[in-house]
Nucleic acid binder design. Structure first.
Lengths: 224, 224
DNA sequence: TCCAGCTTGTGAATGTGAACGCAAGCACGA
DNA sequence: TCGTGCTTGCGTTCACATTCACAAGCTGGA
């Protein structure tokens, strides 16, 4: 089955495995079995083995996976094996929190630029990054930035993404709560936090008699 | 097929449809067809019709869906038809941003309490909500709060969730980047922002010759 | 060298959701 | 009242992902 079509869900799980390996690595062990890793990240062991089988033989039968080697392989597959520079557009409350968030560097992602249209914010330094005027987005290409995080208001989202696409950005993480479009060469991942919270009440128990008899059943698939 | 098993993916899309309806509502139209709504939110029209068919006949053939009625139905299905009180635990950078985020109220979700362990933060008022000491979580039940947002550091995540589960919280949106467990009666949705960003480089074009010949193909499923 | 115990890798079976296509049904005008 | 055009609802088909089960293969000890 090697090197056939790679399921989208597999790609979605790879960062999860990487996170698990990085968290478990500093506990002194050299190798880890699919069973132990599976328990640690909350999936099934065969799921892990199947996912890895799309990319090659990373383990040793009877032993397990070398933690360090496996982490390196996943990083290579996800193209996280080099430090990737990212830009943040929109330094409101959420943008500020993202700038301060230490979690990105664990994956080799480095926010090197931040932009906003508000003159009051431009020039301020947040977490070591100086906020620039949004017009400076034009220079992103020369600075070698091809990833961007969009945390602007809904009304500015599409135009921001258009601009980013124009200056050569190839991957965008969008937090604006609306549909956005981009050229085919630009991969956009959208995350609407309010929408995630909004589907939580669905799984709540019913107040009276079984109005939603089937809610919450059959979640064999993705947990969250 | 009415009232058979409801696909998890359908539940995941319902908030998307609701968002689309709310955004399109103020444009004066009374009815909307599945085709128009589909274009607006970025899915296929048959997908919308199929999803709604699990819950009942909301539309009128030849006319489309009443925007107001459909929004009301989706809210009912998602149990968003009453104002739901939610608590925030962890008022760091991300927590502060979430408190200030205006997007929740559009879905009838209201953050009425915020907790932190840092004495410097306790007592401060952010966006109209006074930050309380984490020990006050015990009183959540009497205050009628059964939804919580967890934005604490990784090391505190599991114990926070244990505590919330003890005091009767039934739904949790977790931002801590680690695996967490909860009793079956508690639904946990986890969101790891860094992990989302981490899978973005995978879709980047390859530098040299086709090292990843299949990347980015075949995305018939969920866009983001 | 051989055996016992583990763990991986993967073909095949199963299950689930996406995609299709069309009959049923409503609105409106002739 | 009938016909035309449009839109929904849904049975069916197809594609994909999960799940299973086991052969292949490594390690370490006898």
């Amino acid at each position: 089955m090697r090197y056939r079509k790679i399921p989208d869900e597999t790609v979605r799980r790879l960062p999860l495995y990487l996170r698990g390996l990085l968290l478990s690595a500093d506990r002194g062990r050299e190798h880890i079995s699919s069973q132990v890793l599976a328990d640690f990240v909350g999936v099934q062991s065969w799921q892990i083995r199947k996912d890895f089988s799309y990319f090659g033989d990373f383990g040793t039968r009877g032993v397990g996976y070398s933690i360090e080697k496996l982490a390196r392989e996943i990083k290579r597959i996800l193209r996280l094996d080099v430090i990737r520079k990212a830009a943040l557009v929109g330094v409101g409350d959420l943008g500020t929190a993202l700038l301060a968030y230490p979690g990105f560097c664990g994956y080799g992602l480095d926010i090197v630029a931040a932009f906003d249209v508000d003159p009051d914010r431009v020039g301020k330094v947040v977490n070591g990054v100086r906020i620039e005027d949004a017009s400076q987005i034009d220079a992103l290409q020369e600075r070698g930035v091809i990833l961007a995080i969009v945390a602007v208001p809904r009304s500015a989202a599409q135009s921001t993404i258009d601009r980013l696409a124009e200056v050569g950005v190839r991957g965008i993480l969008n937090f604006a709560p609306c549909k956005v479009v981009a050229p085919r060469r630009v991969k956009v991942i959208s995350l609407d936090i309010a929408m995630e919270l909004a589907r939580l009440p669905y799984y709540l128990p019913t107040g009276g008699a079984g109005e939603h008899p089937l809610a919450g059943r059959s979640s064999r698939h993705r947990a969250s």
